[in-house]
């Protein structure tokens, strides 16, 4: 059994097949060694590949940053388990708020759906599909899946947080775009017309964040790194993740 010849034999059969026109009997007559139908090389490659997959599976335990997810994506376990990263939800979203998650937020959740309210917000496809989110409808593996009778108002995607240090209203510029945009009356205006969040009413739809004009007025709020109203993801205990150091303005 010329086992030592096995790797070469296995490696370049195509070349031999096409090229060797001069016989070379001694080199080619060695037996393609196999043990119970599987060659040693195949076994090593296959097991190696599986070990690599197991190592990659370890990202499960690497920790991930909770993100604001589309409706029906609140169960992180289910979302990551069933999502095959096909991006149908991203594609179907009529308001273009569903985006694939970045690798910066963890390899495990990479390319799973998340919400981005830069341009628009999530109203559960009110006009487009009678209040049934299209992302949930198209998900082929039900990674996004709403419980029976789930309502937009009570399904918490995240919670708005207001940063008074950059909010134009707190600079006495009487901006109230977010107040006007909020469909759930979750923003309160005080006597000086300054907004604050009523967290009990907020479901994280993103209407306020989408209309916040801090960046359009960057010469005034020059310190702003993000909008004055931001939807924050919640952890398992319902606490805001990566929020403002002192918390936002609430009422």
């Amino acid at each position: 059994m010329k086992e030592n010849e096995l790797p070469d034999k296995e490696k370049e059969p195509e070349i031999d097949q096409g090229m060797d026109t001069s016989g070379g009997d001694s080199a080619i007559s060695s037996k393609n060694q196999s043990v119970e139908g599987i060659t040693r090389r195949s076994l090593v490659t296959g097991v190696g590949g599986t070990v690599a997959l197991c190592a990659l599976g370890g990202v499960r335990f690497a920790g991930t940053t909770p993100l604001v997810r589309p409706p029906g994506g609140q169960d992180f376990e289910r979302l990551t388990a069933a999502c095959i990263r096909c991006e149908k939800c991203v594609e179907v979203c009529p308001r273009h708020v569903v985006k694939p998650a970045h690798i910066e937020h963890g390899i495990l959740g990479m390319r799973t759906p998340t919400l981005n309210f830069d341009r628009d917000w999530c109203n559960w496809c009110e006009e487009e599909n009678n209040g049934h989110p299209l992302c949930v409808e198209v998900c082929p593996t039900e990674a996004l899946s709403l419980p029976e009778g789930a309502e937009q108002e009570t399904t918490i995607l995240g919670i708005a947080e207001l940063d008074s240090s950059v909010c134009l209203a707190y600079l006495d510029l009487s901006c109230r775009f977010c107040y006007d945009a909020c469909p759930f009356e979750a923003i309160h205006l005080d006597e000086n017309h300054r907004p604050s969040i009523i967290t009990e009413k907020c479901n994280g739809c993103g209407a306020c964040e989408a209309v916040c004009v801090v960046f359009e007025n960057a010469s005034i709020s020059a310190d702003a790194k993000e909008r004055a109203v931001m939807i924050r993801a919640l952890d398992e205990d319902g606490k805001i993740v990566n929020g403002l150091p002192g918390g936002g303005m609430t009422s």
Partner: peptide, 29 residues
């Protein structure tokens, strides 16, 4: 193709890792 080869082991590994780690590991790569 007649016998088990490395691909088949990796197919088994993909199914197994999905089951064990609770997410489709192979989809990542």
């Amino acid at each position: 193709g007649a016998a088990i080869d490395s691909r088949h082991i990796i197919l088994g590994g993909s199914v197994l890792t999905a089951l064990v780690f609770g997410f489709p590991v192979f989809c990542l790569i």
